[in-house]
Amino acid sequence: MSAQERRPEEDGRDFADAMWSIPSYLLAGMIIYGGIGWLLDRWLDMSAFFPIGTVLGLVLAGYLAYRKFSR
C-alpha cells in the first residue's frame, strides 16, 4: 500500500526481520500447541491430540507471521 513512500532500506530491514523471525514463530507454535496436545494425550490416555496440536500450532503461527509481516 504505502510501498511508494517507504525507503528501500526500511523495506530490506523489515524483510530480513520477517525471514529470521518466521522459523522461530513456527517452531514456537508447534512446541506450545504440540506440547498442550501431548499433555492432553497423557492425561486422557489417547494419541490423537499431539498431531492435532502440532498442526494447529503450525497453522496459528503461520497465520500470525503472515498477518504480522505482510502489510
Partner: peptide, 11 residues
C-alpha cells in the same frame, strides 16, 4: 503464547 515463546526462548 507463540510470540512470547518465540521471542524469549527460541530466538
Amino acid at each position: 503464547p507463540i510470540e512470547f515463546l518465540s521471542n524469549m526462548i527460541i530466538a
